[in-house]
Design a protein around this nucleic acid. Structure first.
Lengths: 119, 119
DNA sequence: TCATATACCGAAAAAATTTTCGGTACTTGA
DNA sequence: TCAAGTACCGAAAATTTTTTCGGTATATGA
């Protein structure tokens, strides 16, 4: 396989288990994009997260499918079409995503002051 | 400086801002250990998180101090003594830690079945 | 015909993170 | 005297994650 984590998830501690499912660079954002329940094509996800390379989205979506957070449907069409849809398990993480979103919005100014505007 | 992140926190998106403060390997666990408000010495934190090397705890605590999640007190004694205490800002992340803890406990069995017991 | 788009994958490079090891300096207890 | 503990830091190695680049295959529209 092209790319594989040594240990898929961390089973030692419930906190690290949860973290290991969402801690890589774009997974939490992908969950947020899929939260409506509407299935999205990879190119559409890339349009919504343009700073992520298509390759890394591909890799992380694959892991999320493996972990059961997202379901993939491949349509045997040409040109190829596939869709990713959040699962019930993935949806159960949305309250955590929500809390992180509102924490980030609430405390944004502290870090903007501290580390300055970027871009 | 010995070790420094290129970009301390990610200011582009509130979700990634929050994630960037806690996503490295032991930060969420450190917050959980400090949540009582009781200051802990580095050696004590290491005792509670024995799988983390003292070096990585040292590095991550330093970043957490820099980010304002933890406060450090150095006592000018010999042998040296220092203590880390969670700040109000760090404490405001505890509800997120709690949700991740209970999510992990709730869904532990799925991943144990899937990826097997380790250790 | 030819560029573009679709989805995906391999391989290598680059970057980031963590581990390992050793060293500082001083104390206490065996 | 000597091992162990305290906190910390530098440097290099190892590992993990992300980026970059190119390639597969086919269809559509200019």
């Amino acid at each position: 396989m092209a790319y594989e984590k040594k240990i898929p998830v961390d089973l030692d501690c419930p906190l690290r288990l949860t973290m290991s499912l969402i801690e890589s660079k774009w997974k939490s954002c992908i969950l947020d994009e899929l939260r409506s329940g509407e299935p999205l094509r990879p190119s559409e996800i890339h349009k919504r997260l343009p700073e992520a390379t298509p390759r890394v989205l591909d890799i992380q979506l694959k892991e999320m499918v493996e972990d059961g957070l997202v379901a993939k449907t491949i349509y045997p069409e040409l040109p190829p079409r596939s869709e990713y849809k959040i699962t019930d398990l993935g949806m159960s993480l949305i309250p955590i995503i929500d809390q992180m979103l509102s924490w980030g919005r609430e405390h944004f100014d502290i870090f903007e002051r501290k580390y300055g505007k970027r871009k």
